[in-house]
Design a protein around this nucleic acid. Structure first.
Lengths: 132, 132
DNA sequence: GTTCTTGCAAATGTTTTGCAGCCCG
DNA sequence: CGGGCTGCAAAACATTTGCAAGAAC
């Protein structure tokens, strides 16, 4: 029987995620958590984040070639993301309306996470593109 | 003024994407395209795919630490994705019902791509987890 | 005490980039 | 012809992993 241990490292990572309103990546979390645990390694941060994702406590926003961003999942409140292709900024959208678990799922597929993402360019980046 | 050139490499990449019903990664596309253009480099494949994504012809499905998958966008037909966390398999879901361009977008944000993804585990992987 | 976790560092794998020469338009 | 494109190979990064020592329970 697997047993998840409540280590100081795990507590610190959860705390850091809860306390930021942003959607940080693993390196940012590492820097942050080091203030309390100076020796914590980046590897541990990754392992902890993976565990939190598996537990469904944290969700990810992933972009090719760029660090994965982590988002502490506020229970019950469905919220989705707006991602700027230019600067990588991520905004939240509150969406009380949940989207239907579409018919047409493969036989026996168990959905753990529904992601709705709007990708595009933010106002500043759009201006930059015109200029540059 | 930027000028997009219609090179043989670009044609071959588009062709490869159009002809497969799967959602391949850059390496697979590279292998495929080499049959017609033996000297094409992986770098060129990446550069071409980036251009196609910018043009809105191709969309991506991204997963941390794993190769980005590319999906030729069938015009007009809104289709979304089911992603298995276990084996990485990607399935399509046809969705005639488009999802609302949510209110609450940041001021001036220009949406280029709406992604709806169902992440979870497929039947086989779920069985494997129980066993292993 | 047992077993899961950590730190460290090296390895892995993907994606990007510099540059000289090539080709499209 | 000129400027974008390409091939090549070498980075640059993000993420994973092996292992011995440490910490939970």
């Amino acid at each position: 029987m697997t047993m998840v241990r409540n280590t100081r490292q795990r507590q610190a990572v959860v705390l850091a995620l809860r306390e930021t309103p942003t959607h940080p990546d693993a390196a940012w979390i590492h820097t942050q958590v080091r203030r309390a645990l100076p020796n914590i390694s980046l590897g541990t941060v990754y392992r902890t984040l993976d565990a939190l994702v598996r537990d469904g406590v944290v969700m990810t926003i992933e972009r090719a070639g760029q660090a994965t961003r982590y988002d502490y999942k506020h229970a019950g409140l469905g919220h989705h993301h707006v991602v700027c292709r230019g600067c990588g900024a991520i905004y939240d959208i509150d969406a009380e309306d949940v989207q239907m678990p579409a018919t047409g799922l493969p036989e026996g597929f168990q959905v753990q996470d529904v992601r709705l993402e709007y990708h595009g360019v933010c106002e500043d980046c759009a201006a930059g593109e015109k200029r540059g």
